[in-house]
Design a protein around this nucleic acid. Structure first.
Ligand SMILES: [Mn+2]
Ligand SMILES: [Mn+2]
Ligand SMILES: [Mn+2]
Ligand SMILES: [Mn+2]
Lengths: 221, 221
DNA sequence: AATAAAGTTTAGGTTAATCTAAAAATTGTA
DNA sequence: TACAATTTTTAGATTAACCTAAACTTTATT
């Protein structure tokens, strides 16, 4: 049972992300762009990955990730996202500061470490950017994200991402206490203007306009 | 400002440890032994480290770490030991399971990460093996470890390590409630057999033989 | 002091991961 | 369809980190 090098893991992850969950074939230049490397280096690496059985490869026709490759890519992604949660939830990093560090931490080898970390973080389903965390078997069990505005009265959901990521909107959210991870319960919806009465973190009640609820992406419990 | 590679960091750390805090010169074979590598590889690496100014080197006469090298080694050691504390205190690892994982984590590059981790762990002074954690400037401010047997009556200390790490001894300690971190107060010493009456965690009193107190390493408060 | 043993370095190779430049294949377009 | 543009691969290098085998220094022993 071989182990992938850091570089191989990074390539595999890039291929996975570029392939829309392993469906599409991925072109050499796309990989080179994403990893800020040269197409020639990508060709070299693709040969190696295909020898190891994590991708299939026909010259000049791009690369496709195999089931084994997908499993390995998702394991790296799981580690990356769990570490991001750790950095934000436990070490008080802001969600836009954690990527580079997680890029390093994702390569630490120890499945026991990751299961303990998962437990310590209370089995989060999403990372601080709202991306779902694969489980230990590489399955992303989580529901897809929906705009808050589509929920019915009584629904309980978790804020995981924003469509509008402009400073003005993010500032507004900061002021109101709407952060990624916040629990939201829909108390009421107002027909006439589409605004919504919500309760956040089982505590504070507030009203949000349709414009706001359209831009808040949540996962229903 | 260059950065050391993982391999360079591991060599430098080995040299630091083998040199008794940077005092002594270190021989090629000793480094090779410690890193389970070949003397020829060590010679190669020593040239590189000396080009980078972290060691001084006279052929056939071993290597000596420079002030800059010492600082860099201590930075890696700081990271290693803080991660060990994290693994034991937060992820419930046992102190004898953490070394290999810390050996990987020590190479993660981010000083902000380490200062946040330090804070999260409430600025620990010792790692789970009782070794002192250097501060951000590379200074180990903590008192050195001494065998419990050397303390005077009335001394208060913390159990930080064991000389004998055999299963039989560790089992004995488990049964008696003597764990790493335990607070120990010396109540009395018996001249005739060197045994000691101690109080642990401000609570239970017990007697330990000279053989035991010789093997318990403590830090005096 | 001479020689044997031990320790260390050098010479010459390998593998992983990168690069540039040039060749080859595919794709787009007139 | 022909040819140009784009994409991809190959050829040939480089650097880091290893290795074995052989040469060279230092140290220990008769
Ligand atoms: Mn990475
Ligand atoms: Mn993320
Ligand atoms: Mn290491
Ligand atoms: Mn330790």
């Amino acid at each position: 049972m071989y182990e992938l090098s850091f570089a191989e893991e990074n390539y595999l992850k890039a291929i996975y992300h570029l392939s829309a969950d392993g469906q599409k074939q991925v072109n050499t230049n796309a990989i080179a762009d994403r990893l800020e490397t040269r197409p020639a280096s990508v060709s070299d690496m693709i040969r190696k990955l295909s020898d190891k059985g994590v991708v299939t490869y026909v010259k000049y026709q791009g690369v496709k990730i195999t089931d084994d490759g997908k499993k390995k890519a998702l394991w790296v992604i799981r580690k990356h996202r769990l570490w991001e949660v750790f950095l934000v939830k436990k070490l008080n990093f802001h969600w836009d500061e954690v990527h580079e560090i997680a890029e390093q931490l994702e390569h630490i080898r120890s499945s026991l470490l990751i299961s303990r970390l998962d437990e310590f973080l209370e089995f989060p389903k999403f990372d601080p950017h709202g991306d779902p965390i694969p489980n230990a078997d590489g399955v992303m069990s989580a529901n897809p994200m929906t705009p808050l505005s589509e929920l019915n009265v009584g629904s309980i959901a978790q804020l995981v991402s924003m469509k509008d990521t402009g400073v003005i909107f993010l500032n507004y959210l900061d002021r109101t206490g709407l952060n990624i991870g916040t629990k939201i319960k829909v108390i009421d919806t107002m027909e006439f203007d589409g605004s919504m009465e919500i309760e956040i973190n089982n505590d504070k009640r507030m009203s949000v306009s349709k414009q706001v609820s359209d831009n808040l992406l949540v996962i229903v419990e």
